[in-house]
Write a protein that binds this DNA or RNA. Structure first.
Lengths: 219, 219
DNA sequence: GTAGAATTCTACCGATCGGTCGGTACTGGA
DNA sequence: TCCAGTACCGACCGATCGGTAGAATTCTAC
């Protein structure tokens, strides 16, 4: 079947296009650039895509597929809501940091590039994630596992911490993916402030020693 | 002085250009669009700007000015590091949510659009903010006001929560600027998780009632 | 071998891109 | 009254934009 080969090539085009759009941005990456990078002429490229915008949509949908497979599906059936959220944070951080998916970066950055139905489609998929987080926070609250907070603010705070990483993370930097994941879990769920020996204590004991070496400066 | 009028008009051009670039993105907002919006021809616009990229640089520098005035300066000399950070978060959230500054949104979104020296200049100004946050976290740790965490991860988590807002906040939505600020302060500094009555813990029982009605389904 | 589909090409479209040139209407001082 | 500078414009530049028509090539199945 030539159809298989066709799908393969189509995938390769998406892959290459994603690399370019991720590097230069959607508007700055011209169809000519993408065609060159694919080893095709512009007209040849249009054999595989219907338009530049639909190409972007396909890339984003693929990115959402990857996200759902590597993050959502991995944690969806964890019974404990807090554990579910922690795992979800870890998986999501790894998705953003490890070079797995330029497509995800594109989804994050080009959040207002698509228009009309295409935009609505991707937004709907994003919203499912937000609702999943909100529900998990609500569930955790019902079970008394976390303090009372506005679930939406919690969800967007979670997302902000995790997704903002794409703006500053550098693989060659001294902050590793695992370390970031651990620290952020700790920060978000463990709380930051020590309580001045008054009402509530939110302290973890074993962590204190392990973290003792950690205090040195970081330029 | 014609020079005063000139500066005024120059400011008006920056203002209008910022509005357009904020709405459509830097690459998508053409010089022609900007000129039209200013009530000038393209050639006329170039009387006020040297190039499109320098226009962007000026907008970003102005945005950083606004940020430093409305956020950094307001909290810089608060003695208590935790209070300083809390106030900083509040001020920064208001800067992002209240429509004061399309320029700030542009700085956030177009973080890789500038090149060369211009990019370096803006990055340097951003880094000063990151360092301010890191130092404040370190100070708070030295004084035992917060738990030991990697200061850089704390700083970037802070920034992620706060700055990601520009991607989802809608002024007409049910979540107000003040509420977001309060909830995020609480979340970030107060900690999220309740302690499961383990090791050295004594009190706090609101969870008991909440746990009464068990877990229901949450998608 | 050859028909026919699958693939990729050359050549081109009108529009627009960022930017510039030579000019001109207007203005305040001398 | 003249003039120098300010503030702008019409017309244009070469390059590139996203996209297409249709021919040429290559592959596949019989």
């Amino acid at each position: 079947m030539g159809s298989d080969v066709h799908r393969e090539r189509h995938r390769a085009v998406l892959e290459t296009a994603a690399r370019l759009i991720c590097e230069k941005g959607y508007e700055a990456a011209s169809v000519q650039d993408i065609a060159d990078a694919c080893g095709l002429t512009k007209a040849g490229l249009y054999y595989y895509i219907r338009s530049k915008e639909e190409l972007l949509l396909e890339i984003m949908n693929y990115g959402m597929d990857v996200f759902e497979e590597r993050v959502l599906l991995q944690v969806l059936n964890i019974a404990d809501p807090v554990e579910r959220l922690k795992q979800c944070m870890e998986k999501n951080i790894h998705l953003v940091t490890e070079g797995w998916s330029k497509e995800v970066t594109i989804i994050l950055h080009e959040h207002e590039t698509l228009t009309g139905a295409a935009r609505a489609q991707i937004n709907a998929r994003k919203k499912r994630y937000v609702h999943f987080l909100e529900s998990s926070f609500e569930e955790a609250m019902r079970e008394g596992r976390i303090r009372r907070v506005e679930p939406r603010v919690a969800a967007f705070s979670f997302l902000g911490m995790v997704l903002w990483i794409y703006k500053w993370y550098r693989p060659e930097g001294k902050l590793g993916s695992d370390q970031i994941a651990r620290e952020m879990q700790d920060l978000f769920f463990g709380g930051l402030e020590t309580v001045p020996a008054k009402a509530k204590r939110t302290q973890k004991r074993p962590a204190a020693k392990a973290r003792a070496r950690n205090q040195e400066k970081a330029a």
